[in-house]
Design a protein around this nucleic acid. Structure first.
Lengths: 126, 126, 126, 126
DNA sequence: GTGGTCTAGACCACA
DNA sequence: GTGGTCTAGACCACG
């Protein structure tokens, strides 16, 4: 919370987020090949170094693996991909609860507040 | 989302968050005096400059005002303090919804997921 | 220029300004007695130290003189009071011109700009 | 007004003023890159932190934007830059008028006084 | 290379 | 005592 200013999450993490979202939404599945660093850099309009860093980060998390000379692939390890979903979900929810609790909201208020915004939100997307 | 690593929000903003929480929870109310820069620096274990920055940031947001030679005080402008609460609340909820939506969760899943964690969470503290 | 933020000129100088204005507008004239430090502090709602500093400053400028046990008086030296007026005037005008010049305005634009605001300004006061 | 002593506007704001002047005079235009913090620090003979502060201030005002790892740039938002000019102009003029009015000058005297100094001023620089 | 944050420690103006 | 500014120098994340 508090933010509002420069917001700014590093670009390389934003790209990682995007890829994670695609995985979680099954737009990318086990074994899929990611665009090459250069390709992704061009289509995303960023420096290749930045994409490189994204891929490294994802590899560190076990989500992708690079095969020399072939490219970068979503891991075949389905368990990791499943975990990713539940992990991101849990992380999101727990963070949300903690922040709301810090602000003195009761569980009931969290749910009703969430409901409220979900309604006024119906029918959008990025 | 994604994070887990370095996390890292600047210290001076973390302190600002903490103060905002206290305001929102009514532990700090309009007109209250904040600890002096030096005092807060010691109790928070940081450099006075860092606290100074926190206070400047809060002043920029209209949440506190400094009176020369006297100290830093929560603004008397109750409206700003009210707005703070609803602003933080909204920000939290909207972010949560967006992130969950990115991950392909339906509104129903968000609410049930939230419920689930709220139960297993009953009776904790920071 | 640039300002906009905390603005903030020290209180003791604000008070000095106010007294100078009164002199220049002949509301205070040579030999007049100023309120005592305590009195002025109360009516101005500030710390006596602050008023003390104002008087010291004015004395340093030769505008007032303090007579022990009697109080603080506007100087009898009319020349200084006359100079005050022209000095403040000059200072004001010169600063104005410099700032406008910095912004790339021509003398003609300064005068026309000034005229413009003087018209829309007719009939106000603090 | 009144001043003459310590004058003293913080260095970081003086630098901001300078940059604002350059923008208003079209010496810096939308999209231009500012010197790096370190560079500017050296050429201005101040500490990098001080320049950093200047840039932060300008960013807060929406006049510049920083691109990570690339540098600090004048905003592409031309409207902000236009507003800057008129804002600074207005601020200057209004302050001038108020101060002169405090001193008991009539609008006519302001204009004739200004004229007077503009003539004796023809052909100078900083 | 860039900006952003932080510490350490100093000095000053203000009340 | 208070906050505000500044220097010196360090470290980090980012592109």
């Amino acid at each position: 919370m508090t933010d509002d200013f420069h917001a700014a999450k590093p670009i390389y993490l934003q790209i990682a987020d995007r890829i994670n979202s695609q995985i979680v939404r099954k737009e990318l599945i086990a074994g899929d090949k990611l665009p090459s660093v250069r390709e992704m850099a061009i289509t995303s309009g960023v420096n290749p170094n930045t994409v490189q860093r994204t891929y490294s980060e994802l590899e560190r998390m076990g989500i992708v693996e690079t095969r020399r000379g072939q490219g970068t692939f979503i891991t075949e390890d389905v368990k990791i991909l499943m975990d990713l979903r539940s992990h991101l979900k849990e992380k999101n929810i727990v963070t949300f609860i903690e922040d709301m609790k810090d602000m003195g909201f009761t569980p009931e208020e969290m749910i009703s507040g969430l409901r409220e915004y979900l309604q006024s939100d119906s029918g959008k997307g990025e």
